[in-house]
Design a protein around this nucleic acid. Structure first.
Length: 489
RNA sequence: GGCCCGUUCGUCUAGCGGUUAGGACAUCGCCCUCUCACGGCGAAGAUCAUGGGUUCGAAUCCCGUACGGGCUACCA
């Protein structure tokens, strides 16, 4: 690797952080960490109409939530600030001055209307719609005078005559060659004095001494133009890595139609940041083709640009769900208890302070839900029966299980046996209930299923004995009694 | 229109001249088991987009074609 690795993620705050952008951020971050480099966060807020401070704040939150810490940028500052493009206009002006001085930029007085109509004509005729360089042929002194006089103008890049092919060195695609003739003299600075994207981004990347540019595929075609700017500025051209797009299941660019797309939405839907990070990392990159669980720590040590795949990847929500389950199961019970409570509060089950009031109860519950939840939002429905005095018996469970021959006897016997239990734990509850099948002359499964419906209200639940232990003696006995009276046999 | 990029099981991918084309998710069986889930074992699933080359030998290298995508803006 060339000297100091400095990479940047430069979102434009025109919306929330999208998973595509998040993946780009992950790769930049991982690459910086892997090489002991610097991860810069820059806000490309040059679109005044659509950029908002709310969006910026949310993007920062999403990045933090994912665990992507930046070394330079908003909130932390750094030696190359400010890190908002709208605050760097001086840099663009300086860069433009340099280009004016060395003749790589020239003023253009063509009106937008004129350009548009010319473009339309050229396109209709099947010709080149690029700028025809009318103003490049103006006498320099003349042009300077018109600028001085205040005539409306933009500044264009003068593509060097006779410039050979422009080759983009890309870590993902190898060397891509663009014929220089295909480049027109694009605009650097608009009529209102603001820089265009291709100009601002290069000035910033050069000023911030960015060594590697890892970004979306959609910028590949713009890269030769940007290389021309680097050259005009006399700055070294960084190495590139262009990432292919993320698609929805229909092969179209991922959008809201496909479900959650913002990092914020994934958070709300119960995904763990470590799982989303892992999933995103693997969407277009692989460690070795075998390993699927790649936590941040491994990513920081093993990420490499040469294992990024070239083709677009379809976002697979089912695989994310599986991976989220893997990470959920990996959280230690104590930690899991703390992480699950906010979701219970949101569902109206737990209240602030509950965890502190009986931590051991929540820690005992944690392993039970942990291995059954794919998302944190799965938890509340699973445990709701533990947070109410009167459980609602599901009609189908009632008719199929409690309506069964002998159900009443089972419930009565269970009530009997449990009411005399001295120590109320999952182990003692199990021991007690396991004696029933024999004395009742029924199968163990039948006994447990009847008890399950009575206690949890459902045919599918957390493990019975543990559930009863967590529910407590009073509520359990009450439910067995209620269910027995609802029994027809 | 021009210029670029991409194409291996349904999906994410491994592969970088010689493999029975490997793994993961999803699917389907079986096992474990108080239900569900977890876990274990196994099955099915890819004429490597396609047509030509190069080579003793091609998923791997070259060219064309098809399909998809990007750029070609005083958007980013």
């Amino acid at each position: 690797m060339p000297d100091p690795v400095r990479v940047r993620f430069a979102p434009s705050p025109t919306g929330a952080l999208h998973v595509g952008g998040a993946r780009t951020a992950v790769y930049n971050w991982a690459f910086a960490r892997r090489h002991g480099g610097v991860f810069v966060l820059r806000i490309d807020d040059t679109d005044p109409g659509r950029s908002t401070t709310e969006n910026t704040a949310q993007i920062l939150r999403s990045l933090e939530w994912l665990g992507l810490d930046w070394d330079e940028g908003p909130e932390v500052g750094g030696p190359f600030g400010p890190y908002f493009q709208t605050q760097r206009s001086g840099n663009y002006a300086t860069a433009l001055e340099r280009m004016k001085a060395n003749g790589t930029a020239y003023p253009c007085f063509c009106s937008m209307e004129h350009l548009e109509s010319r473009r339309a004509v050229a396109r209709a005729a099947g010709g080149d719609p690029g700028y025809d360089r009318t103003c490049r042929r103006l006498d320099p002194a003349d042009a300077a005078q018109r600028v001085e006089a205040g005539e409306p103008h933009v500044w264009r890049l003068a593509v060097p005559a006779g410039r050979g092919d422009i080759v983009v060195r890309d870590a993902v695609r190898g060397e891509t060659v663009f014929p220089a003739e295909a480049m027109d003299d694009f605009i650097l600075v608009r009529g209102d004095g603001t820089p265009t994207y291709n100009f601002a981004t290069v000035v910033d990347d050069a000023d911030m001494q960015i060594s590697h540019i890892i970004r979306g595929d959609d910028h590949l075609s713009n890269t030769p133009r940007q290389i021309l700017v680097y050259e005009a500025l006399g700055r070294p051209v960084p190495l590139f890595a262009h990432l292919s797009m993320i698609w929805g299941a229909d092969g179209k660019k991922l959008s809201k139609r496909h479900g959650a797309t913002s990092v914020e939405a994934f958070r709300e839907e119960g995904y763990l940041p470590e799982a989303l990070l892992n999933y995103l990392a693997l969407l277009g990159w692989s460690l070795d083709g075998e390993t699927t669980i790649v936590p941040a720590e491994v990513l920081k040590r093993q990420f490499s640009l040469d294992r990024i795949s070239k083709s677009p990847a379809v976002f697979d929500f089912e695989k994310l769900d599986w991976m989220n389950g893997v990470y959920i199961r990996d959280v230690p019970p104590e930690t899991f208890a703390a992480r699950m409570v906010p979701w219970l509060e949101a569902a109206g089950l737990a209240n602030p302070g509950d965890l502190e009031a009986r931590p051991e109860w929540y820690v005992a519950l944690a392993p039970l839900v942990r291995e059954r939840a794919k998302r944190m939002t799965d938890i509340a429905p699973m445990v709701a029966f533990l947070f109410t005095d009167h459980v609602a018996l599901e009609p189908s469970a009632t008719s199929r299980v409690l309506g069964r021959e002998g159900a009443g006897r089972v419930l009565a016997a269970a009530h009997d046996a449990l009411s005399s239990l001295k120590t109320w734990t999952a182990a003692t509850v199990e021991e007690t209930l396991r004696t029933l099948p024999e004395s009742l002359q029924t199968k163990a499964k039948t006994v447990f299923q009847v008890a399950r419906v009575a206690v949890t209200g459902s045919m599918v639940s957390l493990p019975l004995f543990e559930s009863i232990a967590l529910l407590g003696r009073e509520r359990t006995l009450a439910r067995l009694e209620v269910a027995r009276s609802a029994t027809t046999h």
